[in-house]
Amino acid sequence: MTSEYAEATRRRGLRNLQGMPFVLPYLPFLVVFGIAPTVYALELAFTNVDGGWVAFHNFVRTYDDFRFVPAFKHVLVYTSVWLGTLVVFVVGLALLLHGRANRVSAGFRFLFYIPGALAGAASVLVWLFMLDPSVSPGSFLLHHVVGASIFAQSIAPGNLPFIFAMIAFWTGAGGWIVVMYGALNTIPPDLEEAARIDGAGPITIALRLKLPLIRKWIAYMVILSFATGTQLFVEPEIVQHASFGLVPDTWSANQLAYQMAFRYGDFNGAAAIAVDLLVIGLAGAVLIVTRSGLFRTDD
């Protein structure tokens, strides 16, 4: 064994731990507030109230609950609408904003972002008024697009997935636009210059150059939005309170999990529903991670 070989081996050994010290401070947080509670919840999902193992009984039991299927149906429709509009408009708006970075762009970014600053309870007041045709600034749209002349018609059951998607878009798009804009800023400007010199128009630059370069960010956004979409909670809760119960407090699956846990004290059932949502979210994540190479660090 030559000394060079030994040297290379030793260095390889060191390199095998490269990066780990930087991750160490994060690990206690990950374990205490992430992994341990998740494991606990997983355990709850497969046991009963006395701690005995019941395999899939909680899953079957919650599936049979009269609110389960409607709740999942609701989130399915909602997530499709929400994800579609989010990806198209967030990426589109970010690209439009990036086309010419100037003060106007900054102004629009601020405008798009500000609704995101309104947390749950804060939005109740605003949306109670926005959805009420008799006082809303958008009453024209409510009358002619939604066909509603009173509040109770705005939030008719058939409209709910779209109403929630609209509210969620209003509060959530701005944040992702900021992220995408930041992502676009990581593209070296020389690339853009080179493309422009080659004669590419702004749309070509946006779609052929910029878009592929922010693939990983878009993938991240889709993964998270898919999960947050299926785990919809805040918007139906808001509208439920604002409508004095016209919208049920178990409209979405996540709301049902919450009610199970706290209204009935059925933490095992709640954990089962949470695991259902986790599996759905993970399936989406795995699909996107593998297709977009999110975990690859070599490109």
Binding site: A152, F244, G245, L246, D249
Partner: peptide, 18 residues
């Protein structure tokens, strides 16, 4: 133990409106 108002609201009132 369960509230009955939400049932009235979302199975009756929403349909009365319709």
């Amino acid at each position: 133990t369960y509230p009955d108002q939400p049932v009235w609201s979302n199975s009756v009132v929403t349909q009365l409106v319709a």
